[in-house]
């Protein structure tokens, strides 16, 4: 039920932007309609609703025990769930994929729809959604409550959405980057401690990373110049779609690899997160 409603909402919103921009105003740029839909947070709000139940609900209703006791490996279970959600997102996307063909039957005020550009944008949006679904699934694997899972996913998406604002506020000097990275090392150590309950391992991780960072800083401080902000901006998945190739109208292999890698990392993290429950 949730499924059909979310599909309908995706179609309604994208339909609204396409109607407004491509049909009413008559712009031939279909990909701009998709970018507008993203920039108005349509997917940032919808995707958490698709992913929130995926793993949290299995835990909440104890059906997780069925999955864990089946003669199937965890990575196959997680991958199956991921592909199921991807299929789910693909259905409205396939319907949306018909729009450029329909639009191309009519000439707009600024000429006809460029199908190559339109489908480049459409394909990149699908990849962006694939990344978002992976991140949302990971968020769902962290908690038992689906609402909290949805909130975590939405929070991550909004953080990524406004990443360029956040990084632009961060000082570009070498020392602030060093401090930020050392703080990250401490956080990483805390995560290791939480996962393994092994304080020695946590100290080695934090201490080791901190020492390496400080040594590197004294060897060549210029390496750290603007390092942290640029690392953060690599998390800006939305900027890649909205300001990147789909906006400019270029087919960029780098962006495709970036999205696929990003999704793969989060699917992998989800497997680890599910597997960790066995050891808790």
């Amino acid at each position: 039920m949730t499924g059909y409603v979310t599909m309908a909402i995706i179609l309604a919103f994208v339909g609204f932007f396409v109607t407004n921009m491509n049909v009413r105003i008559g712009s031939p740029k279909f990909e701009y309609s998709l970018i507008t839909a993203v920039s108005f947070f349509v997917f940032l709000i919808i995707v958490p609703f698709i992913t929130m139940r995926s793993i949290a609900e299995e835990r909440h209703s104890k059906t997780e025990q069925l999955l864990l006791s089946l003669p199937i490996s965890t990575h196959r279970i997680v991958l199956a769930k991921y592909l199921a959600m991807l299929t789910f997102v693909a259905i409205p996307m396939l319907i949306i994929g018909i729009y450029p063909l329909l639009l191309s039957l009519f000439a707009g005020t600024e000429g006809v729809v460029n199908l190559a550009l339109a489908y480049n944008g459409w394909f990149m949006l699908f990849l962006l959604l694939a990344v978002m679904v992976a991140v949302g699934m990971f968020a769902s694997s962290l908690v038992e409550n689906q609402i909290i899972a949805a909130l975590i996913a939405a929070a991550i998406f909004f953080l990524m959405f406004f990443m360029s604002y956040i990084t632009s506020a961060f000082p570009t000097g070498a020392l602030p980057s060093l401090i930020a990275l050392v703080v990250c090392a401490v956080v990483l150590g805390a995560v290791v401690l939480a996962l393994t309950k092994n304080s020695t391992a946590a100290c080695i991780v934090t201490g080791g990373l901190a020492v390496i960072l400080i040594v590197l800083y004294y060897v060549d401080a210029s390496m750290f110049w603007n390092l942290f902000p640029s690392m953060l901006s690599s998390l800006a998945i939305f900027d890649v779609f909205m300001n990147g190739a789909s906006y400019i109208g270029v087919f960029d292999i780098g962006e495709i690899v970036y999205y696929i890698t990003f999704a793969a990392v989060f699917v992998f993290l989800t497997v680890e997160s599910v597997e960790r429950r066995r050891y808790s």
């Binding site: 209703s61 104890k62 059906t63 997780e64 025990q65 069925l66 999955l67 006791s69 089946l70 003669p71 199937i72 490996s73």
Partner: peptide
């Protein structure tokens, strides 16, 4: 060897793992 081992077992946990 979880796959081989689990194939020999049917399990009903404390709370039946059912999809309502």
């Amino acid at each position: 060897e979880p796959i081989e081992a689990k194939r020999a077992i049917g399990y009903l946990p404390e709370v039946p793992p059912l999809y309502g």
